[in-house]
Deep mutational scan, measured.
Amino acid sequence: MDVFMKGLSKAKEGVVAAAEKTKQGVAEAAGKTKEGVLYVGSKTKEGVVHGVATVAEKTKEQVTNVGGAVVTGVTAVAQKTVEGAGSIAAATGFVKKDQLGKNEEGAPQEGILEDMPVDPDNEAYEMPSEEGYQDYEPEA
């Protein structure tokens, strides 16, 4: 019985440690998101679009440190934060509304985080759909 109880105690310690790591990862992701939003706020009209992409990228980098179902929630929060940063930029006159959601080359930025393969159960990952990809044929 002692062996059984000791095993359960060790398992509990492992769960607590994993929860603490997840909590730490979420806190880091939130900190990076805040950094990115402050970065966007300090940019001029020309830099705002690039700044919004930076927020998304920093958040995406930190999301990889967070495991399990938390990833889905962090990704949703990050996307809403990026959308909010863009709205703030438009409201303050840093950028025109028609410039939001495009990178410096004018290509749409939507789907940055949505296409990231995420499995809350950590069982399997699927690649994003290939609808947006084109076949590449090298020139002879």
Results as ranks from 00 to 15, higher is better:
P117D: 08
K58P: 01
E131D: 13
K6I: 08
E46M: 13
M5H: 00
V48W: 15
E110I: 05
V52C: 10
P138R: 05
G41R: 12
A29V: 08
T81H: 03
S129W: 04
K80L: 15
D115A: 12
T72A: 14
V48T: 02
D115F: 11
Q24C: 03
Y39V: 05
V95D: 05
G86S: 13
T75W: 15
M5C: 01
T44V: 10
S42Y: 13
S87D: 09
S87T: 09
V26N: 00
G25K: 15
M127Y: 12
T59W: 14
E110F: 12
T22Q: 00
A140R: 11
A11C: 15
A124N: 05
G51I: 14
K102G: 03
G51R: 08
L8S: 00
P108Q: 10
E57G: 04
A76Q: 08
I112A: 04
A91V: 11
D115S: 05
A17F: 11
E35L: 12
V63Y: 11
T44D: 00
V16R: 11
T72P: 02
G14H: 15
V74E: 01
V40C: 05
Q99C: 09
A56T: 12
F94I: 04
V82K: 07
V48D: 00
A19Y: 15
V48I: 12
V70N: 01
K60Q: 06
T92P: 03
E35H: 08
G14N: 07
M127A: 03
L38Y: 12
K23A: 04
P138F: 07
L113K: 10
G84P: 02
T44G: 04
G25T: 15
D115N: 05
A19C: 05
A27C: 12
E57P: 02
T44I: 15
P138I: 04
P120M: 08
T92H: 03
K6F: 04
E20C: 10
G93S: 06
T44S: 13
T81A: 12
V71C: 04
E110K: 06
E137G: 07
P128A: 10
M127F: 11
Q99D: 10
G14E: 13
V55I: 13
G84E: 07
F4L: 09
A78Q: 03
F4I: 08
E83L: 04
T59D: 00
K45I: 14
G101N: 02
E110A: 10
S129F: 13
S129L: 06
L38N: 04
E35N: 14
P108R: 10
A56L: 11
G36K: 15
E139A: 10
K43S: 03
Y39I: 10
V15R: 00
V95M: 02
K58A: 13
I112E: 05
E114M: 03
E114L: 10
Y133Q: 08
E57D: 07
K45V: 15
E57F: 09
G7T: 13
V63Q: 01
S129Y: 05
D115C: 06
V48H: 00
H50I: 03
T92C: 14
A29N: 01
P120T: 09
L113E: 15
V26F: 14
G84N: 10
E20R: 02
I88R: 03
A69T: 04
G73A: 15
E46Y: 06
A85G: 06
Q134K: 11
V95Y: 15
V40E: 00
M5T: 01
Q79K: 11
S9C: 09
P128C: 05
A89K: 02
P138H: 05
G67Y: 05
P117H: 04
D115L: 05
A85E: 02
V74T: 02
K23W: 15
M116C: 08
K96E: 11
P138Y: 12
G36W: 13
G106C: 09
E57R: 05
G86A: 09
I88A: 04
P117F: 09
V82C: 07
V70Q: 01
P120Q: 11
V66I: 15
E126N: 11
A90T: 14
V95W: 14
P108L: 08
K34S: 01
H50E: 06
L113M: 05
S87N: 12
V16S: 07
D2L: 14
V16M: 15
M1R: 00
K97I: 14
E130L: 10
E35A: 05
D98A: 04
A76M: 05
V82E: 02
V55D: 00
D135Q: 09
M116V: 01
D135I: 10
E28W: 05
K34A: 10
D121E: 11
V37A: 04
V63D: 01
E20H: 14
G68S: 03
T54L: 15
V74I: 04
A69G: 06
L8K: 00
V48F: 04
E61P: 02
V74N: 01
V63F: 09
Q134W: 08
A29G: 02
V118M: 08
Y136R: 06
Y133A: 07
G47Q: 14
E13L: 02
E104I: 06
E131M: 02
V26W: 15
A90D: 08
P120R: 12
E105R: 13
D119G: 09
V52Q: 01
I88V: 04
K97H: 09
